[in-house]
């Protein structure tokens, strides 16, 4: 993977995430973690190589089919990507709304989830009025509200305290337990160690370490 005529950001990477697996993606800054996530959530296209998601080669995916695949992938962006003109509640409701669900069918779920991530009394607030940690928790709520098949998170605990980080990890583990494939890019070595989950390690755009899988099925 390269941007324009720049040197390759990712090269010679080959791995497979079994359905229902949980992995961390670690590595130093600039090692290509965010780019790898972008490739998986269809924000970038690989300049060479082959990526299969849900058994489909994404290079062959028609434009009209991409949104349906994206709805099955929840993403927590490092820069949050919240919509500043929408309230916390409206931001969290984005996924169900885009999926065409009726508000009456998901209002309560959103209220419960926001309360769970500690934003119960901030549902009416606008993102510019939130702290970094609050924004991060809202980004997580937005990513998980649709119970995605794949959950990608880019430094999801970077702006929260340790207690909230543990809580968020528990949420991710819970989602994983009910079937979601989870891949979390993180610098937090303590969190990675505490979780006991395997890691993929990138170094200078190459996969330096990957666990051996006994795949149940590919994600």
């Amino acid at each position: 993977m390269r941007y324009g005529r720049e040197p390759e950001v990712l090269k010679d990477i080959s791995f497979e995430l079994p359905r229902g697996s949980f992995h961390f993606l670690t590595g130093p800054s600039g090692s290509g973690k965010s780019t790898l996530l972008k490739l998986i959530y269809l924000s970038e296209q690989a300049s060479r190589g082959r990526i299969e998601i849900f058994g489909q080669d994404i290079a062959l995916l028609k434009r009209k089919d991409r949104p349906l695949m994206r709805r099955r992938i929840g993403v927590v962006f490092q820069e949050f990507r919240l919509l500043d003109h929408l309230s916390v509640f409206d931001n969290a409701a984005l996924g169900p709304r885009i999926a065409g669900r009726r508000p009456a069918d998901y209002r309560s779920d959103i209220a419960d989830l926001l309360a769970w991530v500690g934003l119960g009394d901030r549902m009416h607030a606008m993102p510019p009025a939130l702290s970094g940690g609050e924004k991060q928790r809202l980004a997580i709520a937005r990513a998980v509200i649709n119970r995605p098949d794949i959950l990608l998170a880019d430094e999801p605990t970077g702006n929260v305290d340790e207690a909230m980080a543990v809580r968020i990890l528990r949420l991710f583990l819970e989602l994983n337990r009910v079937g979601a494939t989870v891949l979390i890019a993180s610098h937090d070595t303590d969190l990675v160690a505490r979780s006991g989950m395997p890691s993929l390690t990138l170094d200078a755009g190459r996969l330096a370490r990957a666990p051996r899988f006994d795949p149940v099925g590919e994600a």
Binding site: S43, K64, R81, L94, G95, I98, R142
Partner: peptide, 16 residues
């Protein structure tokens, strides 16, 4: 552009 991108990444179709 940022709003449109966020909507696309959340699974919005071009028609939406």
């Amino acid at each position: 552009r940022e709003v449109v991108e966020a909507l696309h990444l959340a699974g919005a179709t071009d028609g939406f």
